[in-house]
Amino acid sequence: MSAIPPGSTIGILGSGQLGRMLAVAAAQLGYRCHIYAPESGPACDVAAAFTQGAYDDSPALYAFAGQVDAITFEFENVEPVAIAQLGARVPTRPHSLSLDIARYRVAEKEWAAQIGGRTAPWRGVSDLPSLETALADVGAPAILKTTLFGYDGKGQARIDSPADATAAWSEIGSPVLEGGFPAILEGRVDFFAEFSVIVCRGTDGATVAWDVPENLHREGILATSSVPASAPVLAQAEEATAFAVAMANKLGHVGVLTCEFFATPDGPVFNEMAPRVHNSGHWTIEGAVTSQFENHIRAICGLPLGSTTLTGAAVEMTNLIGADAGRWPALLGEGDAHLHLYGKHEARPGRKMGHVTRVRR
């Protein structure tokens, strides 16, 4: 399989900050980027071109594919059928199977079980009566989640007792999904830390993995990622990394794949996956020889993958959420702070405005 040479144009579905950082990494390797999204966003500020269009607009997507040499995406909420259609015209990586599995939580759990992974106890839920039955099986406390379109704690409702079932079903919007479960009930996992494994797989099947970051969340949103992780997490890193590599191989995935885990007394428990670059890997821009963004570009273009070795003894990435971005003058005054602002103009509560990374030598 021949490589896509520098000077070519990479199409990115999605205009958010992940697309922005992918476009920056692509430019450093000599590629241009063309963004396709329903509306302009941070990625458009650093890209060579932008096409505004809906993700289900087949004629517009087909025209877009004719202007680029490869396509990737920065988030999961794109219809897999659109990815499959694009892939028939131009190399589209990762392919539609990775997207299909990652965006549907029931499929995630089923695939995890197939490769021997641990998951929280779970049941698919189709309506309020089936939620009540699932609660009898899984027990409470538990979390009710939509099977599609959830992120950063959205599309979730906590259930502390069976009496909360009706309110929880209403809270997630009583979703409708043709041909599958609209919601999933997950039993509580007793864990002492959260961490993620970020791997990248090339077109030749070669894989690399970064050091495992330990993640701290606040109100369902990632606050910090730290490397090296604590000793209890590191004790589970090898098993979790082997799982993530096995998942990438089973999917035939090309590009970055992220798997999130709970560290528990019984070992790593798989939570969810993302078939793309991930917030918990932002530290790799300054903290690793090759960032997750550069290796993703290398992978989808058929280039050799770069080293993931740390550039320092320790790295910490902190998200700047909402009004936190107003601290930018003070952060610029720190000698060891690498500031990334995403160019968003409205600092709403819960909105990721940027991040700052500190590398300790």
Rank of each mutant, 00 (worst) to 15 (best):
L216P: 05
R188G: 08
E214F: 06
L61E: 03
I71K: 13
F192W: 05
V189M: 05
S40C: 07
F243N: 10
V227I: 14
F50L: 13
H253V: 06
P129H: 07
Y31K: 13
F192N: 04
W328P: 00
G53I: 06
L305M: 10
I172W: 05
G281K: 11
P129Q: 05
V245C: 09
V68G: 02
I221N: 02
S15H: 02
A88D: 03
E239W: 02
C259G: 07
V269G: 13
H338S: 14
D204P: 05
E186T: 08
T309H: 13
A26V: 08
C259Y: 02
A248C: 12
T318I: 06
L177V: 13
D266Y: 01
V277L: 01
G7E: 00
V24H: 11
R93T: 11
R188W: 13
V277G: 04
T119V: 14
V356S: 09
T147E: 04
G335E: 10
V197H: 06
R348G: 08
I35A: 08
Y31G: 14
H296V: 08
H296D: 09
A65M: 06
W328E: 09
H296C: 12
F181E: 07
G14A: 03
P42C: 03
A347D: 03
T166W: 00
N319A: 10
I83A: 08
N77V: 07
S196P: 09
E239T: 15
G255D: 02
R327D: 10
Q156H: 12
A240F: 01
G333F: 02
L305R: 09
V46A: 04
T241M: 11
V256L: 12
R118M: 11
E334F: 12
E286C: 04
L99E: 00
M317D: 07
R32P: 07
D204N: 11
G306W: 02
Y104M: 03
I297H: 03
V256I: 12
F243C: 11
A183R: 10
A167I: 05
E194Q: 15
A323C: 03
N77Y: 02
T92N: 04
H217E: 09
V289T: 11
T203F: 00
A157R: 13
L303F: 14
G255A: 00
G255C: 03
L13D: 01
E39W: 06
A140D: 04
G205P: 03
T241R: 15
G281R: 09
